[in-house]
Simulated scan of single mutants.
Amino acid sequence: MALATLAATAACTRTVMTRVPAGIEPVSGFEVARYMGRWHEIARLDHRFERGMTEVTADYSLNDDGTVKVVNRGLKDGQWKSIEGTARFLGDPSVASLGVTFFPGLPGGYHVFALDPEYRWAMISGPNRGYLWILAREPRMDEGEYRRLVGLAKEKGFAVEGLIKNSLR
């Protein structure tokens, strides 16, 4: 009985940590091959696993099994830190909704809900509105474009006043 309860609890925790927040619609027509490569973090909401980091990048590459290799890297206290994980689509690969695992058994939601048609920038939500990233192919973003994306995130219910702008902006 205890093992069944533990398994059910673990499954429920995975579902909660990968769910799409209400009112957030992951991009459909997503082309994973176009998303691969380096992305620069323009802004993010604060969270413990990236706290104090600057010059943050995310590198994505396709694995042979259809999953995505994720390498996040940033500068903290004068030292480069990095972590590698694996992302798996939560359903249809043409929908930008994935679960990313950096630690076995603990996937987190990764939901691209706004994406430039040329794949020059993206906005990503986690499993709730406490997680938001604005990423771009270049380390800098036009201020007008940035303000437009922040406005969209605010309309979607994110606490944009808490955004941390990357030092490269």
Rank of each mutant, 00 (worst) to 15 (best):
T9M: 15
W133P: 03
S82M: 11
L106T: 13
G85I: 07
R169D: 08
P93L: 01
T101W: 09
G105W: 10
V16W: 13
G130R: 10
E118Q: 12
K165Y: 02
D92R: 07
E118N: 13
A58K: 02
S28T: 15
D116Q: 08
F158M: 01
N63L: 10
P104I: 11
R73Q: 11
I164D: 06
D116V: 09
G29M: 08
F158L: 01
K69Q: 13
F102S: 07
L149D: 00
D46T: 09
V112T: 06
T15N: 14
P93A: 08
P93H: 02
G91W: 04
D92L: 02
L3G: 15
M17L: 14
N72R: 01
G37F: 02
V68C: 05
L90N: 06
R51N: 10
E145A: 13
G66E: 07
V27F: 01
L149A: 03
A7P: 12
P93Q: 04
E155R: 15
G126H: 00
N128H: 10
P21Y: 00
Y60K: 05
R19F: 08
W121F: 11
E161G: 13
R19M: 13
L149Y: 02
V71G: 01
P21H: 03
R48I: 14
N128Q: 08
T67P: 07
A33N: 12
G108R: 04
S82E: 13
V56T: 11
G74F: 02
A96D: 00
G108M: 05
L149I: 05
V160S: 04
G85R: 01
G91Q: 05
G52W: 01
R14M: 07
V27G: 03
L62N: 04
M17E: 12
G52K: 05
E145V: 14
G23R: 04
R88P: 05
G126L: 06
G144R: 10
T9K: 14
A33C: 08
F89E: 03
M17F: 14
S97W: 01
D142E: 12
T101I: 09
M1S: 15
G108S: 09
K154Y: 11
V56D: 02
I124V: 15
M1N: 14
H111F: 09
L132D: 00
H111I: 06
S82G: 05
W39N: 01
A159D: 15
G74M: 03
L106W: 11
L163C: 04
V56M: 07
L62R: 08
Y35H: 06
E31R: 12
A10F: 10
D92H: 05
G85E: 08
V70W: 04
A11N: 13
V160T: 13
G144C: 07
L163A: 04
F49I: 10
L106C: 13
A122V: 05
Y60W: 07
G52A: 08
I124T: 07
K154R: 14
I164F: 02
G109L: 07
D59Q: 10
S94M: 10
Y119V: 03
A58N: 00
A4R: 15
T54C: 10
A114M: 11
R73T: 13
R140T: 15
V71D: 03
R14Y: 05
E143T: 13
T54K: 10
L168K: 14
G78I: 06
A8I: 10
E55K: 14
I42E: 00
